[in-house]
Design a protein around this nucleic acid. Structure first.
Lengths: 182, 182
DNA sequence: CCTGTATAGTTGTATATACAACTATACACT
DNA sequence: AGTGTATAGTTGTATATACAACTATACAGG
């Protein structure tokens, strides 16, 4: 997408400053970037972990969480999977030996998803590789100031469209005082 | 995602300026925004057009193209679907009466995907509604300058990760002189 | 002109995910 | 205590998409 509708665009030129001038382009670009990034990065993430789809994000979130374990519902909300989707994704991760389920003291309905030791080391390696790949892919496209600016603006957008995704980072920053993603 | 790996982050603090400082956060934010936008916007796009998934983008691209028709392969490349995925998506659109297939003079292998009259009017209405929804969703989060800046930065990222997605816009801007998305 | 290779599109098949229904547990209110 | 509602997670089912194999057409080189 990222395509304007010209009449709309003209209509909005002199509209109030809290209205976007070109909403479809903003959304289109985000979606197009996301599609491209998935295309480019998925293969190596899949190979590194042996699992496909959103599973890599599940692993990263577990890895970054306290003790490598999280409640299913929290993990679902933050990864953008439905609870059912997460159940299946975790099934695959358990089968692949990267994760395990742990029951939850004090709430017998609940389950924790947790990384195994194998899972932890595999994810650690995959993250290093992943960072390098992204860096290679985008090197030169964004200067350091651009990068900061982009992060700042995307955080504002995310706050509106997917605030749950930021939750783990909040916890982390509260817990260990690092700057975090928020 | 959008989570830092602290040790890596420290390593990169004084690295060359064409290296990203925090690659995972940049990518994570883009992915999180995309997930959130899909969640928020898909239902109404689906209802407006009667089709799901990437089909809305197929429709928008056709709508913005010369004569409302495009070659299958071009459309696939630009939407980020595989050719096979597009074949199926177009099947659904044809079945829904929004699109038709047209054979391609001069290349008997080729097919055009084209909007029907019903398709055109349905898409026109859906786009108007879609723009309003996005604008409502993001109003106040980004000022006009922020919006321009975000578009500029995302274009640079897209150029690296998904340059094909911009192709139609190039054609359009060459053809009718509008500012376009590029 | 014939043959080998490349390209356009479709079809067979596998799978990741969503939605809805279901079970089990927790909690609130009387 | 008992009952009704809310929450946590899983399972049945549908579907959109990807990958690989296939058919048909184009084109280039001898």
């Amino acid at each position: 997408m990222a395509l304007q509708t010209p009449d709309q665009d003209q209509l909005r030129q002199e509209s109030a400053s809290d209205q976007l001038r070109d909403p479809i382009t903003v959304v289109g670009l985000i979606l197009e970037c996301a599609i491209g990034l998935r295309r480019r990065l998925s293969p190596s993430m899949d190979i590194a972990t042996g699992v496909t789809g959103q599973a890599f994000e599940v692993l990263v979130r577990l890895y970054r969480s306290e003790g490598g374990a999280m409640r299913m519902s929290d993990l679902a909300a933050q990864t953008g999977l439905t609870r059912s989707g997460l159940t299946r994704a975790l099934d695959r991760l358990v089968e692949g030996g990267l994760c395990k389920r742990e029951s939850c003291d004090g709430d017998r309905r609940g389950m924790f998803a947790a990384l195994t030791e194998i899972g932890k080391s595999r994810v650690a390696a995959a993250i290093l590789n992943h960072e390098q790949e992204i860096s290679d892919l985008l090197a030169g496209a964004l200067g350091n100031e651009d990068e900061e600016e982009l992060i700042k603006l995307l955080r504002r957008v995310r706050q509106r469209v997917n605030p749950d995704a930021a939750f783990l980072s909040t916890i982390n920053s509260l817990a260990n005082g690092q700057e975090s993603d928020i």
